[in-house]
Design a protein around this nucleic acid. Structure first.
Lengths: 328, 328
DNA sequence: CTGAAAGCGCTTACAG
DNA sequence: CTGAAAGCGCTTACAG
């Protein structure tokens, strides 16, 4: 079980250590026959290379940091989960870095992961990413961001088409007969959040009803309170994300309003949780799993040939039970 | 920014490499004056030791795997989040290992983390942990489990008192006037889940109404369907965990039943999400943050003196809006 | 195609 | 208390 090192295998196979190394790391560089023999011996011994030693020598490791503000927001949780999968499949280990939106923490993680020779990192921001902050760190130059970020020239990005998503929600509501449609932006101050808000404003042509533009967890709750206090209420609400939608519905209902009988609500994210909300949430689904693996692809691509990709994914409308035609 | 190694610092400070090493790793072993000088020089240079190199030499690293079935269940998400905090505070890096309940994956993570010289690991099981499986791996002997596990002689554990939690829920419901109280066990087949179920059965003295004892995500939904089909329905339901409670409420409501007017529902977990459910969920809170840091403490303790701790935490009742007196 | 050597950045007996 | 040496487990020019 123990003391299994490259030299042990080399001896057992009757070759030099460097040949064993090549058999594993650069198989083409060794004669097929030799390679197979070495690999077989290694296998029999139950030997695998030490990622630590490899990282130290190569100055590049397989640790990849996923930097997120938190992981209790199911959006980030789903992201973390699918990325952990995708990372594992590709031979990386996902190191979870939770920042609580604190830039200092982000900096700490960046330097820590740097000294771990992380080949690149993934950041899903909770606020507008300050590229200048990121790029103070070496690793900051090898990061892919899950947010729009305007086709940044050096930072690859993955996002879903926010504008399209809001449009989907809007059209769904219009087709149901809604004319006054409110909006609640919640939780984040990312570029993506901005895009969604802008898209809403454009669609609302001249008559936007923005219920709360706060950027924290409680936005949904506050928006609902505002809504209740209004005299000329909208008949439907689009929430910038599912968590905000949950909050809105929760307090709306507590105030005696019925969803969707009195107000329709559509979310944005497509969290699995939405399916078991009460009522099941109509929402714009983001392909979160795809975002995760694409993020890794982009990072590898940039490392390979320097190309900076910007992928924009298509959202999809999930019609469930929180929307209906306007009452009377 | 680059090429900063222990030798660079040694030269700059005019001492030998081993003195620099000691200044950082065994400060008592070096004269105060020397130490301060070395540390100051290092600081000025912006030097920190390479965790990778240290791990390789010491044969122990600061990577600690958190092995969970998933992270989209908010219970595990909250656990991961608080553990990531706790780990970071203590100089560890949390490596997220999502198993999807697959034993093969667990095994893979165990060996991978082993070769990373992980000093120990934390596992939060989704099913009864098979200790024999764990202990096939070296790392499996240095794991702490978040589940009851009967005061295992070699595996430290943290749990909350399940029996007490169910009792809290039960008493709350009784005090509200409920006499027929149903139960839905959901999601997991852990020892903890078993304890909760047993506790319920004991309290229900002779008249347990178990709605669904399935172990998957949909238990809540199925339980609700069963409930609706019953002729002599309970007036209240205890769910073995919050996710199941969400499911129950969601479909109960979709079927036209009102919570809590027609049925009271209490969950178990105390997820933050419950506060913004509709209605806000009455639930038994587990001190998840405490569980995370205690798990690390137990692991360190065992490493230090071999002692195997078993900590049982007290749950707490969180009364919110999903419970009320029985109707008429 | 394979081997011998140097070295990645540290730690830890062992002397002194 | 400090230094010199060996070595953790690898990789990678460099010869041959």
């Amino acid at each position: 079980m123990a003391e299994l090192s490259i030299d042990v295998v080399a001896k057992a196979a009757g070759v030099h250590r460097s040949t064993v190394s090549r058999a594993f790391s650069r198989p083409e560089a060794v004669k097929a026959e030799t390679r197979e023999h070495v690999l077989r011996v290694a296998e029999e011994l139950g030997y695998t290379m030490s990622p630590l030693a490899q990282a130290l020598r190569r100055k590049t490791s397989t640790f990849i940091p996923l930097i997120v503000p938190n992981v209790t927001n199911p959006f980030f949780a789903e992201l973390a989960e699918t990325m952990s999968q995708a990372a594992g499949d590709r031979g990386y280990q996902l190191v979870l870095c939770v920042t609580n939106g604190d830039t200092g923490q982000t900096a700490g993680y960046l330097t820590a992961m740097q000294s771990l020779y992380a080949p690149f990192g993934i950041v899903a921001p909770s606020t507008r990413v300050d590229i200048d902050t990121l790029t103070q760190f070496d690793l900051g130059h090898r990061v892919v961001v899950i947010d729009r970020l305007d086709d940044h020239p050096t930072v690859p990005t993955v996002t879903v088409d926010s504008r399209r998503g809001i449009q989907l929600a809007f059209e769904h509501l219009r087709s149901l007969g809604h004319r006054r449609i409110g909006y609640v932006s919640g939780i984040s101050g990312t570029h993506t959040a901005q895009d969604r808000m802008d898209a809403y404003r454009d669609l609302a042509d001249g008559d936007p009803i923005v219920l709360d533009s706060g950027a924290d967890t409680e936005a949904g709750e506050r928006a609902a309170a505002q809504f209740v206090a209004m005299t000329d209420r909208p008949t439907a609400i689009i929430a910038a994300n599912d968590m905000a939608a949950f909050g809105v519905i929760s307090v709306l209902t507590a105030q005696g309003l019925r969803v969707p009988a009195d107000v329709s609500v559509v979310g944005f994210d497509g969290l699995r949780l939405g399916a078991r909300f009460n009522p099941a949430l109509t929402t714009v689904r983001q392909p979160i799993a795809d975002m995760g693996s694409i993020a890794i692809d982009l990072a590898e691509q940039k490392a390979a040939d320097g190309s900076v990709g910007h992928v924009v994914l298509e959202p999809e409308l999930l019609v469930r039970a929180s929307t209906a035609g306007p009452s009377a």
